[in-house]
Design a protein around this nucleic acid. Structure first.
Length: 494
RNA sequence: GGCGUCUUGGCCGAGUGGCUAGGCAGAGGUCUGCAAAACCUUGUACAGCGGUUCGAAUCCGCUAGACGCCUCCA
């Protein structure tokens, strides 16, 4: 008996606009595809938030006992900077600017991406396929779409015929757009496009002579269209029809819309049961943009080296901060928000650490099993991590009250509490305890401060408060804070 | 211009047609030589205007504002 058999998960499906009961296609298994990054620059903090949302979803589904195959791709083939028919591909552009090979660009930023995600304690996906590793699959897919009459070749390039597709299918079904509206609102092109209609999108592009990333195909030496890779790779690893497809809100149109169209055109079926879209991360109330300076790199959070924050924050604090907001809400990244999150996070960690010291009683005055079920229900309700965190703080209060003796707990309930809070905090939310370690007496600084603490203790015993306060204040000046607790004095550095 | 989302107390941020979200800050208290820390208790709310309803912050309409997409983006 797996946990998931007792839990009713509801997922907000972007396709229908409603929360729906989750039921996997194959009993006990879940296939989930998430659009990964294009590796042409350092990973954006907004990317981190999106992938974090799906990391938590992945963790929860696994925790419930599902066998989850989580596929997240790396887009390493260059794609054009715009959907008009011209422009440079972004990886090639970066390669030119930095005077390195396109594949060096790809390698550099793939490594950066993995480093940052590791720092944030992400679980690796089950499969992380690359676009350039699936050129053959993409070419085969194009052939099928051409054979089915939904694509045409012009001058070595192949385009998806959106108008033709719309006659028998619904282009815009996901993003709630109408083709006629799109036609009216499309900006004028310069007339140099090979497309029949501006709404058509490229499945294959013939490469200009200077273009380095190129592959042979029946139509030309060229490269695949951006939307195609996800269709090819999701189909290869999850099948023509799978459970969950996720990504950032901004991918809804045109990217995911085109994926649906490609799948319908090639296989005659909609690819996905549940479409999930994570909302945007903004900063100080505005869109993050390098150009305006309203921008922060993930790494700068850990070093504090950015004008928008006043200090460094640990990865878990940043993670905790993000998970305090629901994945479908816009989240405003601010220094004050981080500061508040840090305090809350520390309080949670302190409580978790003190679980082993709690005294047990014959009776419990609190209902731990009801509390535990509330934790599950929070996650069952469209992966509501903020509600889960609120529940965790309810447990923090219990823990402190048990310490105070105003609440009692039995041995069995304490075991349930301990397991549940640990599972949800660390396994499901993916937090780590990276609170500042108090002294352990293992290094020279600790030994020295321990000595001062002892001297202060003696001064206090002798009522020499002038000396004891001097020790405390001057240590504080060099950044060592003393904390007087019930079991003696500890210190923290900053 | 088109499409869509959102507007909650000092700040962040959940949620529901009638019942405490939670965190941070503030206030009161416990502890302390004093403080800090820690812990306990606790006030303040649903953008504005109409409507539906026995009852709406929660549903509908209008107004104002914010954001996103429509062009590469998670």
């Amino acid at each position: 008996m797996q946990l998931y058999q007792n839990q009713n998960i509801k997922i907000y499906n972007s396709l229908t606009g409603e929360k729906e009961q989750f039921k996997s296609i194959h009993e006990g298994s879940v296939g989930m595809y998430v659009c990964g990054p294009t590796v042409y620059s350092n990973v954006h903090l907004g990317n981190v938030r999106t992938f974090m949302s799906f990391d938590v979803i992945f963790r929860y589904l696994k925790y419930l006992g599902y066998k989850v195959r989580y596929v997240r791709n790396i887009t390493d083939a260059g794609h054009l900077e715009n959907d008009a028919d011209v422009g440079e591909d972004r990886i090639a552009k970066k390669a030119r600017l930095e005077e390195i090979e396109p594949m060096e660009v790809v390698q550099r930023y793939t490594v950066d991406f993995h480093n940052i995600l590791n720092t944030f304690n992400f679980l690796p996906p089950s499969i992380e396929p690359t676009a350039t590793g699936h050129i053959i699959e993409q070419i085969e897919l194009i052939k099928t779409i051409i054979d089915n009459g939904f694509a045409y070749e012009v001058n070595g390039s192949v385009y998806f015929d959106v108008h033709k597709y719309n006659e028998s299918n619904e282009y815009g079904i996901l993003s709630k757009r109408k083709l006629e509206d799109l036609i009216h609102n499309t900006r004028e092109l310069d007339g140099q496009s090979d497309k029949k209609n501006p709404q058509d999108f490229a499945l294959w592009k013939k490469a200009e002579p200077a273009h380095i990333m190129r592959w042979p195909s029946p139509w030309s030496d060229g490269f695949p269209g951006w939307h195609l890779e996800c269709t090819a790779m999701s189909t290869k690893y999850l099948g023509e029809h799978f459970d969950i497809h996720g990504g950032g809100m901004d991918l809804k149109f045109p990217h995911h819309e085109c994926e649906i169209a490609q799948n319908q055109a090639a296989k005659g079926k909609s690819p996905v049961n549940y479409w999930m879209h994570a909302n945007m991360l903004i900063m100080n109330g505005k869109k993050m943009a390098k150009s305006t300076g309203n921008f922060i790199l993930p790494n700068e959070i850990f070093t504090g080296d950015n004008p928008h924050i006043t200090k460094a924050f640990t990865p878990s604090v940043a993670r905790f901060f993000m998970l305090q907001a629901h994945y479908r809400s816009v989240l405003d990244f601010t220094n004050d928000g981080l500061l508040a999150a840090e305090k809350g996070y520390n309080r949670l960690m302190e409580a978790v650490k003190s679980l082993s010291e709690l005294k047990i009683s014959d009776k419990s005055s609190i209902d731990i099993n009801a509390w535990k079920q509330k934790c599950f229900e929070a996650m069952n309700d469209d992966f509501n991590s903020p509600i889960l965190i609120a529940n965790l703080f309810e447990a923090v209060k219990y823990i402190n009250q048990i310490k105070d003796g105003t609440v009692t707990i039995t041995k069995e309930d304490l075991e349930t509490l301990t397991k549940t809070i640990n599972d949800f905090t660390f396994d499901i939310l993916g937090l780590k305890d990276d609170t500042i370690q108090t002294n352990t007496g293992t290094d020279k600084l600790s030994g020295t401060v321990e000595l001062l603490i002892k001297l202060r203790q003696e001064a206090r015993a002798n009522k020499d408060f002038a000396l004891s306060d001097k020790i405390r204040d001057e240590l504080a000046e060099v950044g060592i804070k003393l904390k007087d607790g019930k079991d003696g004095t500890t210190f923290t550095t900053n």
